[in-house]
Design a protein around this nucleic acid. Structure first.
Lengths: 158, 158
DNA sequence: CTGTTATTGACATCATGATGTCAAATCGCT
DNA sequence: AGCGATTTGACATCATGATGTCAATAACAG
């Protein structure tokens, strides 16, 4: 079978992808284990991070866009976080339905605790890897992300 | 908040992870779209790939180990593939319960068709990215994977 | 040969993500 | 002001992945 259908970069990227999927799965389960005793999961943690990172309270749909995730799933997790008191919903002066998601003290404490656990974990994981290489990885990952996102837009318009 | 809890590589890896999750999600949905008209999904495609790649027929549990996935989920998807005629189960002379998973002609055709769609897609995606950088990415990803897998083993023994 | 352990498939449960639909609310244009 | 398009949350469905349990089978130690 002619593997020559692929260009050299295409071939290199193909070889990369399976390992990428596997790394993603490993990172998620490691993250789950890391924060499980805080009542968090990777997904909840990620959403708390988006809330913290935004600085200004945002409605759910905006958080979802920031994360590149589906509105509906983010909504479900935010609802869970709300019923567990990690998050409150504040009235949005600009939109009656789209309430603003705000961290509670409990939510802030949970997020800080997660970050405190994350630091030594990620330090160990990254130990021995040149920062230069990690930056290269970041650059390539971002480039691929941009390409996929822009082709998504093209297909959406179609 | 002292970000100084993290080493420089740890910090670089942290910055990388969110984009990595997002890229993973984008790749999976792009893969789904690519092969959906073949009756495939990313997960099914990946499992067909593992069967092809193994050359010798294997039972489900071995395929799962090759993929770094859960036995139970691979089993479910293999069952689906079986009921759709992409795969047959052959008697294993060494183990009465653990039947061997074998591609049917239909399964082979579906896999080949998927790869034929994948080539131009991945070529476009990888276009302009230096092979050298992609190799660096692969090296880093593999290193991280190895670290996470070995620490998994340690925790399993505990 | 026997008892213990490991492997394997079947079954079940839950968390997450993708997708579609709907009604309410908002926005933009006229 | 009014009307259509867009945004948003609620609800539902399905695919996938992680996890646990169970019984059948196999492998191994004695």
């Amino acid at each position: 079978m002619p593997k020559s259908l692929r260009t050299p970069p295409g071939d290199a990227l193909t070889n990369l992808m399976l390992d990428l999927f596997r790394l993603n799965s490993l990172l998620l389960t490691a993250g789950d284990r890391l924060v499980t005793r805080l009542g968090l999961t990777s997904a909840r943690w990620q959403i708390l991070g988006a809330i913290v990172n935004a600085e200004r309270p945002q409605p759910v749909a905006w958080l979802a866009r920031d994360l590149g995730a589906n509105r509906q799933n983010v909504q479900r997790i935010v609802n869970d976080l709300h019923s567990e008191g990690l998050v409150t919903l504040a009235v949005n002066p600009h939109h009656r339905r789209a309430q603003l998601v705000v961290l509670t003290d409990k939510g802030r404490r949970a997020f800080d605790a997660a970050m405190a656990l994350q630091a030594p974990w990620v330090n160990g994981l990254a130990e021995g890897l040149p920062v230069k290489d990690l930056q290269t990885v970041h650059r390539v990952v971002t480039a691929l992300r941009k390409k996929l996102e822009s082709s998504d837009e093209i297909e959406d318009r179609a």
